[in-house]
Amino acid sequence: MSATRVPPPLSPRARWTVRSIGAAAAVGMALTVWLGLWVTPPDQVQGNLVRLVYIHPGVAWVALYLAFGLAAVASLLYLWPRTRSLFWDRLAAAAVEVGVVFNVCTLVSGSIWGRPTWGVYWAWDARLTLTAILLVLFLGYIALRRLPADPEKRAKRSAFVCLFAAVDIPIDHFSVLWWRTLHQGATVLNPDLSPTIHGSMAWTLLISFLSLTLVFVWMLLVRYRIGVLEDWLGSGELDVALRQRQAEGSSAGTADGATGTDALGTGPREPVPSLVPTPSSPDPAGVVAAGHPAVPERAR
């Protein structure tokens, strides 16, 4: 087992960076919760419900634009022959997985907000429908990735699916402008790029966006690292198994001529005594048949 490969450990600097981002994200989220629940005032129209504004748009920003946008760019860079590297493939995969989590959070937080303001958890509105379609499209991407395939082929195929799905992102963004939807227009990323929110609420909203972005970056880095380890495990396991078999074959062949490799040459033959059941032991393989000697043909 000395041949077991160990994936290269993260450098202390990389580990420190990931931990710092994680800590900054945790502090940012705590700050958002404090500002959102205690410091900012309730809204004139929506009352305390407006506090969802510090979660829902931020989560949607991460899912729809940051995560899926990054996945699309990474897929494009993978497909571009000059920048083709499995780094982009793993980055896209990590971004999609984290994006799907944030997309589900977007739909759930939107539904919780929708019930008291619109009267329904779900409305068949263009923006909501397109966001749900986006979720299903990227679930398809994850399903495709799970299929066992050659890493290069899988990467290429996944990159195409990601790009096709990403066509939905701009349609989703502009849906509130193109169709008269129940969902309100963009508060921050509107065509004039002038946020229609002021005072402490604007600051809290900004901090929520930054903290959720940090949460995304932290999750992305951790997921990317897991992806690398998974690839090591996938390719390493076979190498370890092969080397183990080769080592067993050669040591058995040199130690005892009677226990060399079998006819197919795929591995060492079972040692003779193990095929002879002891009188007290049961006979699971059915080697002892009625009227026949206990020792099989090959061992005699």
Binding site: T129, I133, V136, L137, G140, A143, L144, L147, A149, R157, F160, V161, F164, A165, D168, I171
Partner: peptide, 26 residues
């Protein structure tokens, strides 16, 4: 496009509708 992407996959029959139906939803 999706037919070509799913060609050669053993799970083509089940994967294709899952990928194609949402993209064709518009």
């Amino acid at each position: 496009l999706y037919g070509a992407l799913s060609a050669g996959l053993r799970v083509r029959e089940t994967l294709l509708p899952f990928l194609l139906l949402p993209i064709a939803a518009p």
